[in-house]
């Protein structure tokens, strides 16, 4: 039971990270029907910028409480990522809005390669450690353990998710976003400045990416210019699993993917009598994804018949 509980905690924390990154994918997709492949790299940039700030602060003012340093890191990383997101949208995607569908996909891949290599030129090829500035508290309940950082990740993810749903459902911007997602033409006829809405979407997604990037590097204790690729891929899978374009779907997909990976790696060996081990963790995850999509092609929470010409 304690093992089961521990795997549940592991899966929820991992899933929260996926969910936060998946939100960025799903928001952009909902509006533009574009897989923003570079989103994972924006996350990486957030982590790198924040780490640079925190690293400098830890050297200059070692007495400052860790939480304040983290806040300073966020305060710099978020605007940088937002600017980056806006720049990517403006340069790499907007001119291609009417191009064949695969063209923006290729620019997205190009942008991610560029961002990776720029990060490598700035911060080097090394893994960068996250300074031990955060409380290292560990709590045990029913044999399972959870750390302060893990609790913070869970709480923050839920809070951000709720805030985002509020923004989309209750504000003018949110209404404009929903309208644009339904039909760009009609929205613009109704007086919605579509370009601004799309830019705002990228800005919000990139800010979330910055937060997610810092979370990931604080949780695992390191950052690297290559870290965005796999994270982005997993988060994208999570978004599709939940039904891409749907905010709740991204959250659900992220959490599910985290749980599937945890329980998959934890139990697959026992379930198959040792024939398949934890090296088949990703096979297991993809298998669930494929099975879901085969039976529910629009994802778990996706709207039916979203086929648009």
């Amino acid at each position: 039971m304690d093992i089961f509980l521990q795997q549940l905690v592991n899966g929820l924390v991992l899933g929260s990270v996926y969910a936060l990154v998946a939100l960025g994918y799903t928001m952009v997709y909902g509006i533009l029907e574009l897989i923003n492949f570079a989103h994972g790299e924006v996350t990486m940039m957030g982590a790198m910028v924040a780490l640079a700030v925190i690293g400098a602060l830890a050297l200059a003012a070692p007495g400052v409480p860790g939480v304040l340093m983290l806040a300073a890191g966020l305060a710099v990383a978020i605007p940088v990522c937002v600017a980056l997101g806006l720049l990517i949208e403006r340069v790499a995607y907007r001119p291609l809005r009417h191009a064949p569908r695969l063209a923006p996909l290729i620019t997205a891949i190009g942008v991610s390669i560029i961002l990776q290599n720029v990060a490598m030129l700035i911060w080097g090829k090394q893994y960068i450690p996250f300074p031990a500035i955060l409380p290292q508290g560990r709590h045990t309940f029913y044999g399972a353990s959870i750390t302060d950082v893990q609790i913070a990740i869970l709480v923050l993810t839920v809070a951000i998710m709720l805030a985002l749903i509020l923004v989309v459902q209750k504000t003018r911007l949110g209404r404009a976003m929903r309208a644009t997602a339904q039909s760009r033409q009609v929205a613009s006829l109704m007086g919605v400045d579509v370009n601004r809405v799309i830019a705002a979407t990228f800005a919000i997604g990139s800010a979330l990416a910055a937060v997610a990037g810092i979370m990931v590097s604080a949780y695992y204790g390191l950052a690297h210019y290559y870290m965005g690729f796999l994270l982005g891929l997993k988060a994208f899978s999570a978004a599709v699993l939940g039904g891409i374009g749907n905010l709740g779907g991204a959250m659900l997909g992220g959490l599910l993917l985290g749980l599937i990976e945890s329980f998959g790696a934890g139990y697959i060996g026992d379930l198959t009598g040792g024939f398949l081990g934890s090296h088949y963790q990703d096979v297991f995850a993809f298998f669930v994804l494929i099975a879901v999509l085969v039976f529910r092609p629009q994802g778990l929470l996706g709207a039916r018949g979203v086929e648009r010409a």
């Binding site: 923006p104 620019t107 190009g110 030129l121």
Partner: peptide, 13 residues
């Protein structure tokens, strides 16, 4: 790889 990425973006644009 940086130039490769730039080339991908430029050609598509």
């Amino acid at each position: 790889m940086l130039l490769f990425g730039l080339a991908l973006v430029a050609v598509m644009l």
